[in-house]
Nucleic acid binder design. Structure first.
Lengths: 347, 347
DNA sequence: CTGAAAGCGCTAACAG
DNA sequence: CTGTTAGCGCTTTCAG
């Protein structure tokens, strides 16, 4: 089943078939019709490798996944369906224009990452590459990609926003919205548990909390903000400290779900009932968030949408359809998932 | 960067380079050395498409993922890192021999699934295909694959074990082991919550429970076994029924984690403390299992190992290394994850 | 608007 | 043991 079969059936030259299949100009309607009939009735699909070899696009998008992170998630049992959602989002776009997704593992601290990556690009020649964290911020990876002239999209980058296509969510705004959600429920004394301050994510989420408080004209007391480190344990400790130092608090917003789960645990130990006595909110919608008692109000990262945006920028035929500057940073809308851990302020 | 560059640098013909790269026989050590030096110093890697087009292997394994199931998991928030673990397992094998993984979405109830799949095979020509549930048991998919002569591996098949390479875990045995685990903890009156009896998985897990009870000389009372349907809610209901009909029970083994989580919930409502008053065990190691209070003792499906086994069977150079019959059904070892929800029988 | 010829980078078949 | 010559199925010149 080759282009010759289609050409023979349509009674035209292979070049004409090629023209129709590529939507090239200067094709008479009748020729187009003949070719299309022949192609569909034969169930014909062009060979990816022949196309790629002949100089057309490879129709391939590579997703670079970090090996260590995958192993870690997997061992810790904290794995989410991040990759599944990412691939799904990218595939829904890619399949429309007959592009394909290749998944590759990267050891982000391998000694010959550079060589491996170059060899990979030389071997599969993807049209574009999707970088997932932590490789979204790996300068060497980006250098190699730049050198090869391969476009890339970075999911959730932390810095150097002028490189590649940056696709992200607005964490600061999401944190602001979550805080506003608590305020709307009547809370006006809201505690906050940060992540490690070295992380940009921690700082953005804290800023969002402060934004919302300021917007509502609420003054944040110094002892309402407690430092955590994104772990369950730090949430439990933070809850105890908050209870002691700021018993007036009626809601706690933690910088991620693990921490929020820890807060939940700490609250239970202190005899506080959630959400009757205390509302608790998290961030990330990690796998545990839907299963705690009560289940956790949190922010969901729109991973599939981010991947879709990435694909749209990397795949030329989709890229052309984009409104606005295709190189601009993309901010994808997130979701606030209201569950049982937040409720109206007790009075 | 082509084979000509390498040949030029090594001062040999392109065929010699090809020979070395393909580990063909009849190559003098000196020639091999020259070529290898040239190739590595140039960071050369053969073009996938050229190889594939020239008739060598495409070095490609396709993973067929069900679109509906992905969407459903994603929407329900019950998504696990199944796909991530699967791909990781397959990739760890594939990368050793420079094979690549392509992910494709399949609508298992699409009207033109057959045509789409044929076109896909024609277009990418994978060496082998990995079928994930529910497509592991899709006869039409297997028919197309057979017709195309493309080998395929089925992850967790339910029937027709003579088709493709079947890679699975021994659910009956796992259920037997979990039951034996409870018995070893001193429990001798153990309740069981089934899944929908129409499912093979439900029947296998129930059989395993009965095996272990019989082995230990314990007679299963009729009212110890309650039918559930794999949902949280059915677990809660089952717990209530068990408590009423068989209060002598000191442990409950549920056919999956959602159900076990429901049992946990039901026990709490009945004032039973887990594991002090009652031990609870699940099956699957779903994302929620590690986050419940107490966290759930369960069986982990060895998804990565299953994918690795699949890859080994589909990738010829790995296949040759296999001991034993490469076509035989593969049973991969599972894990019993003992967490806090099971403990010694109260007395 | 359409077609013939050349060649992408590799492997296979066939010499030497 | 090594090299030469044809393609694989397409797209890209370049001619009509």
């Amino acid at each position: 089943m080759t282009i010759y079969d289609v050409a023979a059936r349509a009674g035209v030259s292979i070049k004409s078939v090629s023209r129709v299949l590529n939507n090239e100009p200067n094709v008479s309607p009748s020729l187009r019709a003949k070719v299309e009939e022949a192609a569909t009735s034969l169930g014909y699909r062009r060979s990816l490798s022949a196309r790629s070899l002949a100089g057309a696009s490879s129709s391939l998008i590579a997703v670079l996944v970090d090996a260590d992170l995958t192993i870690e998630h997997w061992k810790s049992g904290r794995g989410s369906d991040y990759l599944g959602r990412l691939e799904f989002g990218a595939l829904m776009e890619a399949r429309q224009v007959d592009y394909h997704l290749m998944v590759e593992l990267v050891d982000h601290n391998s000694a010959d990452l550079e060589r491996d990556l170059m060899a990979l690009l030389n071997s599969i020649r993807p049209e574009g590459v999707i970088l997932t964290p932590p490789n979204s911020d790996n300068a060497m990876v980006m250098d190699v990609l730049d050198a090869a002239g391969t476009p890339y999209a970075r999911i959730g980058p932390e810095a150097a926003f002028d490189r590649g296509y940056c696709v992200e969510m607005d964490e600061r705004r999401a944190a602001r919205e979550m805080t506003a959600h608590l305020i709307a429920l009547g809370h006006d004394r809201i505690g906050f548990v940060t992540g490690p301050i070295a992380y940009g994510a921690s700082r953005r989420r804290l800023a969002g909390y402060r934004d919302a408080m300021a917007e509502a004209g609420l003054e944040v007391q110094a002892n309402w903000v407690v430092e955590g480190d994104f772990t369950f344990r730090s949430g439990t400790v933070a809850m105890e400290r908050l209870h002691e130092a700021a018993p007036e608090i009626t809601a706690v917003f933690a910088s991620n779900d693990d921490t929020a789960l820890g807060v939940l645990h700490g609250a239970a130990r202190l005899g506080l009932s959630v959400p009757a006595d205390l509302s608790v909110a998290g961030f990330d919608d990690s796998p545990g968030a839907g299963f705690s008692t009560p289940d956790l109000t949190t922010i969901r990262q729109p991973v599939a949408e981010m991947a879709a945006a990435a694909a749209q920028r990397l795949i030329p035929p989709l890229r052309r359809l984009l409104a606005g500057d295709p190189n601009a940073r993309v901010i994808v809308a997130h979701d606030l998932i209201a569950r049982q851990s937040t409720a109206e302020r007790p009075r």
